[in-house]
Amino acid sequence: MFLARLLRPANVAHAHCDGPCGVYDPASARIAAEAVLSMAKKALALGDAMDPATVNTRTRFIQIKEQQADVVKHELDVLWHDYFKPEHLEKYPDLHDKFWKATKLASKNKHEIDPANGQALLDAVKDVHDIFWATKGREVPFYLANPA
């Protein structure tokens, strides 16, 4: 230990990619994915009514679904591009495939209105969550804000 302290450099040479905050968390993607699922469920629950109030509410739900699906894509991209490193890919060779499928699911949730797609997106985000926290050596539960 003494030798390690003696040899340890006092200077740091930064080889960083971005700003040095280092704060990443898949929770942002999870919250947005939950919103996508919730909006699909609520929009379908409105039924086929075409009165102005229902159309207005349905439009709002769909608009939020669109926005939150984009948020999922952005949050996943940040993790994919900025957090994950080549050595993570060595350990999880299907990492790229998982991200690609997750972001494709986000797009599918924009194209269609089906809670099954929302659930699939949430499951894909959970996959990323599991890998992310495994790379940090931590066990963080994948809890849902709206478990129902």
Binding site: L7, R8, P9, A10, N11, V12, A13, H14, A15, H16, C17, K85, P86, E87
Partner: peptide, 11 residues
């Protein structure tokens, strides 16, 4: 001069 590398941009 000795340096400790921080980050992965030179991987």
């Amino acid at each position: 001069i000795r340096y400790e590398v921080s980050g992965q941009s030179m991987y």
